[in-house]
Computed example of a mutant assay.
Amino acid sequence: MDHADDRPELVVDPARPTGRVLLAQGVEQSYVDVADPRHLRFEYVRRMAAAADLVAPAGRALDVLHLGGGALTLPRYLAATRPGSAQRVVERDPAVVDLVARELPALPGDVTIKVADARDAVAAAPADRYDLVLADIYRGARMPAHVTGVEFVTEVARVLRPDGVYLLNVTDLPPLVFTRVQVATLRAVFADVCLVADRRMLRGRRYGNVVLAAAGRAGRLPVARLAARVARDPVPGGLLHGRTLDTFQSGARPT
């Protein structure tokens, strides 16, 4: 059987000559501007970047773990906005790693890339190692079940420092049942959790991405500043936290 169509590919954005789109099994996985790593096309990536911008003073170098590498959009962004950050990227697909290394600009030496499963990589990491863990873990259009439960989230919490933050991208469709379960799962482990998404998604009107942020210390998340930032996005976002997140969770149970 010919599996050529399963191979990842990078294509030029016809609307932006310096833009590159990573496709895996025909699904858009990442977007990189080879001339400007601060240009983020996908709205959910802008929301993750906004949270990453606000979790520490601007420009401060952080120790970061990326679960899911793709075209390394956020590692490139953080290398530009927080120079000197020690970033470790875990990507399961060696074909993606090879393609990106061959066809996209190289990253600074303080960014390392490992071909591994995300769960295995987190289990092997030392405790209290990272300031920030970002998870964008998909096989095609599906998030693997072994990185969605309390056991995995507990391991993520273990590798974060006391003030560390976990950012998670979730793809969902109305009525956002999977997202509600993920909120419950994060809240079973972390003291502070919030959600940001396109307001139309929160009204149950479209399929798309939800970004969840979690921290071990109550009050750690920069909720007010993040709400203001995502509201100003070209695709305005809403933020749920506290009582509004209670209502959204609506009886969903952790997995």
Rank of each mutant, 00 (worst) to 15 (best):
G26F: 09
G26A: 06
E28K: 13
E28A: 15
E28S: 13
Q29M: 15
Y31T: 02
Y31H: 09
V32D: 03
D33V: 02
D33R: 00
A35V: 05
P37I: 00
P37T: 03
H39K: 00
H39N: 07
H39Q: 08
R41V: 01
R41L: 10
E43G: 02
Y44V: 06
Y44N: 02
R46I: 00
R46G: 04
R47A: 02
A50I: 05
A51M: 15
D53C: 07
D53Q: 10
D53I: 02
L54N: 07
L54C: 05
P57F: 12
A58I: 12
G59D: 14
A61N: 13
A61M: 14
L62Q: 14
D63T: 15
V64M: 11
H66I: 11
H66W: 07
L67E: 08
L67S: 02
G68E: 09
G69R: 11
G69N: 09
G70P: 12
A71H: 02
A71K: 05
A71R: 05
T73L: 03
T73K: 01
P75D: 04
L78E: 15
L78G: 10
A79D: 10
A80W: 02
T81R: 13
R82M: 06
P83T: 11
S85W: 11
A86R: 15
A86W: 13
V89C: 07
E91V: 10
E91L: 06
E91H: 03
R92Y: 14
D93Q: 08
P94W: 03
